[in-house]
Amino acid sequence: MSAVQEVAPREAAIAMAPGKRAPLKLGSSTLVGAVILLLFIACAAFPDAIAPYAPNKFDYRATLRPPSWAHPFGTDNFGRDVLSRTIWAARIDLQIAVFCTLFPAIFGTFVGCLIGYTGGAIDSVFRRIVDVVITIPFLVLVIAIVAVLGPGLTNMYIAVSAVNWIVYARLIRGEIIAQKRRDYAAAGQVMGYSASRILFRHLLPNALSPIVVYWMTDMALAILLGSSLGYLGLGAQPPTSEWGVLIGDAKNFMTTAWWMSIFPGIAIVIAGTGFSLLGDGLARLVRRR
C-alpha cells in the first residue's frame, strides 16, 4: 500500500478505460491468481495440517541450518523451521489483507456515495481532506499514527483504516459523479424515486465494480504494507509468525543465513502477485461488460 496508494484511483481508472485489445482471454494469468489465492487460504486455514513443525518449536541442536530435506527452507537462530513459520504466517498475512481493507472498503464506499451524490460543501471539504492526505506520504502518516498508538497489529489496522478509506471514498465519489451525469439517474428522479433509492439501488450497483477490482489490488498492497511494518517492528510483534517479522528476525543473519529472509519474502511476492493477477482478471471482466 505504501507504494501505489496515492495514484491508486487513477490507476484503476486506466484499468477501466475501454479496451481496444483482441478478444478477451480471462486466461491463464487469472487462473494462476486464483490458484495462488486458494493455496494462501489453505495455508491460513490449516497451517497445522500443512506445516511439518510447530511454528515456535525451538531446537537448539539444529540452529541456522541451511535448506535440507528435513528443513526445506532451513532453520533460524532458535532452530525453528522456516518453512513451518512461513506457512503459519499466511494466517496473519491473510488477516492483514482483509482487516486493512475491509473497513476502508465499506466505510469509504458509503461515505464516497454520499459525497458524490450530495456534492456541494461536503464535497469541497472532502477534496480538502484528500489534498492534505496525499501531501503526507501514506507510509509516513501510518507510521506517525502507529507511533502515537504504539506498535502492534491492532493499532496497525486502526492506523491503516483511518487513512485508507479515503482512497475508496475518492474512487467511488468519482464513479457516482460520472454515473449521475447519465440519463437513468435523471429518469429515476422524474419517476419520483427517493434519493436513497436512486443512490443505493441504481447508482451504487453501477459504480461498484471498480471498487471490487481495486479491493483486490488493495489486498496485495495491504500485505506489502503489513509486512513492511512488521519488518520495521511496528506491525505484528515477534514471536508471531508474519512474513515481515520473519524477515526482520533475520536481520542479523543476512550474510550467514540467507534462507531466513529469502523464503518468507518469496511468500510475500507470490501472495501479492496472486491478488493483483486476480484484480487484473476482474478488471478485464468488468471492462468487457
Binding site: 507504494a3 501505489v4 513492511s228 515481515g244 524477515i247 529472509s261 529469502i262 511476492v269 502477485t273 493483483s276
Partner: peptide, 13 residues
C-alpha cells in the same frame, strides 16, 4: 508484475 509485489525492504535485502 512480480516486482510490483515486492516490498522495498525485500528488494533491499
Amino acid at each position: 508484475q512480480v516486482s510490483l509485489s515486492m516490498p522495498v525492504f525485500y528488494i533491499g535485502l
